[in-house]
């Protein structure tokens, strides 16, 4: 649970209710990079899995 405590601590540092609120740079960076990195990992992970297993999960679209 180390990463959860770390993320929670980052969130606590950002206190928008405080006067002259300025979020920490690391909080901003993690907010944007974490979802993008997880998305890229999932996207390319699925692609790698398909290649390894020799299957195709679908071409997208409705």
């Amino acid at each position: 649970m180390g990463i959860i405590h770390w993320l929670q601590a980052l969130g606590r540092d950002a206190d928008p209710a405080a006067p002259g609120f300025q979020p920490q740079l690391v909080y901003i960076a993690v907010c944007v990079s974490m979802p993008v990195l997880v998305g890229l990992a999932v996207g390319f992970g699925v692609r790698l899995l398909e290649r390894l297993l020799g299957i195709q999960l679908g071409k997208g679209g409705h």
Binding site: P35, V42, G43
Partner: peptide, 10 residues
């Protein structure tokens, strides 16, 4: 953002 990044790669 994470979900759409994964879907965009696909």
């Amino acid at each position: 953002c994470g979900m759409s990044t994964a879907a965009t790669v696909r």
